[in-house]
Design a protein around this nucleic acid. Structure first.
Lengths: 135, 135
DNA sequence: TTAATAACCTACTAAGCCGATAGGTTTATA
DNA sequence: TATAAACCTATCGGCTTAGTAGGTTATTAA
């Protein structure tokens, strides 16, 4: 299950991608139109800015704006930044790999093999999709 | 991410499926050979019995055994019992559907559409696999 | 009939995460 | 100089996870 943080983050990015002009949009406006707690969204947008997806402008008329072309933003990278691993087990994660304590040998582990297949099929869908497809 | 409960549960089922005879296997033995905390595993196996995957026999020589043919046990049903929803959002879950508080209209929600595709591709993999494939 | 065995059941807990909320600081604009 | 909006830090209640502890019931073997 995706956390609300991730869901809200994606919605916010899609909201920005829908806009034709690149003028900054305030947190409060996104929060209002997407029904998200403003303060919670604030922390998410900050996160997205620090991760290089968004730029920010302070003061009146300020807000957040997309830095890159929505077509260039894969959903895999968005989800990895907001949620963390896409895989269902740490031992099959490409970007957040961790060995299982209990498993002596990954190559013979039946669960491992299965989850690799799940991971790959999920990755196929998500890597083909960009922010532009959501907007 | 799958919980350890789910991972352990699948491993335990696979352990039983690997065996040629259908004689009961004790919790302690499975725990030992799969490196799982015995007491924790106990609660998982109980769960799997109550869900109709396992039968149990008490007393000496007792233990748990598979009720059905491993070929007949889809991984989707196993995961749903142990973990709950397979979908990444409640609003795209087939078996555990819940409406999103924040979303006024699912049909126009960009995240919703994306997660349906992820769900379907995951479901395709998992529904084709049975316990027999893991053993 | 008794002892041993193993499932069954109930309750508890420490730790961590999630989804916020509160309140103050900095920077840019009018 | 006042206002606006991002930025930052800290905190919190509630929930889930991954167990642990300890006793009860049913079955088997001596």
């Amino acid at each position: 299950m995706l956390s609300k943080k991730t869901k809200y983050g994606i919605k916010a990015l899609a909201h920005l991608a829908k806009r034709t002009d690149k003028s900054p949009v305030q947190t409060a406006e996104i929060a209002r139109s997407e029904n998200i707690s403003p303060k919670f969204l604030e922390s998410i947008l900050l996160n997205l800015r620090k991760s290089g997806f968004l730029g920010a402008k302070k003061g009146k008329g300020g807000g957040y704006y997309l830095i890159k072309d929505p077509k260039e933003i894969q959903m895999t990278t968005v989800i990895r930044v907001l949620e963390g691993p896409i895989a269902m087990l740490p031992c099959v994660s490409l970007n957040y790999y961790e060995k299982c304590e209990d498993c002596p040998d990954e190559l013979t582990c039946s669960v491992h093999k299965l989850m690799i297949q799940v991971r790959d099929s999920t990755l196929k869908v998500l890597s083909e999709k960009t922010l532009a497809d959501l907007a």
